[in-house]
């Protein structure tokens, strides 16, 4: 609760505010939000584009800015960067809180607005409670000015190693770490490629062996068929020889057939008579 009281005081001490939004209905809504929770005598100036906003800022210092961030987006980012990087140029406080809003943001848009120096972002529908939470957070954020970035402290996560220390100081270590990571990534990529090649080779070898085994099996089958065929032929030949032998034996066992040419007249007559009978 003590924290809240301190912030109430900070917010209530603001006297001038710039609202940058070309839509008159949102101008009125933001005005009511500020009236709802803000300092009673807050003076609000309305701008309809970035140039108009910068002109009003030059004419009189503001304590904070509330803006539509899709004026379009490029115009909003340009407006933010002109303020944040204009230390030597402007007579007003370049570290003032700037609260932005839009119907929706992509993560890329949030990164770009953050790196251009926005303090906090809100998504419509607008809410007075969220608006003042944003203003409270923006009021308590340190302002950073480096060669690469000017704007509120972008660190929103508590990292113990970075207490009172700039993360940019560890840039060399970060680069070495990144190079190491890249080297590991390349090695992993090469290993993966080699593993893929080995797998492909093994697969090829397996296919070749399978093909060889199939050919061998076919050859053996043909050989077996040839053997079987030869065996069948030999068996048939043996059977024929046996038949012939049997017939010969039968023939030999049968009485010899008389040869008429070798018979005497008497034997021939008997033979013919026998045949006639």
């Amino acid at each position: 609760m003590q924290d809240k009281v301190e912030i109430v005081f900070n917010i209530l001490s603001a006297e001038y505010c710039l609202v940058l939004d070309p839509n008159p209905h949102y101008q009125r809504l933001v005005k009511e939000i500020l009236r709802f929770g803000g300092p009673k005598n807050l003076e609000i100036e309305f701008a309809v584009d970035a140039d108009h906003g910068l002109r009003l800022l030059r004419e009189g210092s503001m304590h904070f800015i509330v803006m539509e961030t899709k004026l379009p987006l490029e115009e909003s980012i340009d407006f933010l960067m002109k303020i944040r990087k204009g230390r030597a140029k402007w007579n007003f406080d370049i570290s003032l809180p700037i609260i932005g809003y839009a119907d929706a943001f992509t993560p890329q848009e949030i990164y770009r607005l953050r790196d251009a120096g926005i303090s906090e972002l809100m998504i419509r529908p607008l809410s007075a409670a969220i608006f003042f939470k944003c203003l409270k957070s923006a009021s308590s954020r340190k302002f950073i000015e480096t060669s690469g970035y000017c704007g509120p402290d972008r660190r929103r996560r508590l990292v113990m190693n970075y207490a009172n220390k700039r993360r940019a100081d560890d840039r060399a270590a970060e680069l070495a770490e990144a190079a190491k990571a890249e080297e590991a990534r390349l090695k992993a990529e090469a290993d993966a490629k080699a593993a893929l090649q080995a797998a492909a080779k093994a697969e090829e070898e397996k296919a070749r062996k399978l093909e060889e085994a199939q050919a061998e099996a076919a050859r053996k089958k043909a050989q077996a068929e040839e053997l079987a065929r030869e065996k069948a032929q030999a068996e048939a030949a043996a059977a024929a020889a046996a038949e012939m032998a049997r017939k010969k034996a039968e023939a030999e066992a049968a009485p010899a057939k008389p040869d008429p040419s070798a018979m005497t007249q008497e034997e021939l007559a008997r033979h013919l008579l026998k045949q006639k009978k």
């Binding site: 109430v8 929770g37 949030i110 990164y111 906090e120 969220i130 939470k133 970035y149 929103r156 993360r167």
Partner: peptide, 27 residues
């Protein structure tokens, strides 16, 4: 605004922080 926040006792103090929802902080 302050009375409204007290009336909304269930409100979460961090529900507004859109910028911490993206991964990574600024460098």
């Amino acid at each position: 605004a302050f009375l409204s926040q007290e009336a909304d006792e269930g409100g979460d103090d961090d529900d507004f922080d859109l910028m911490s929802m993206i991964p990574g902080d600024g460098p």
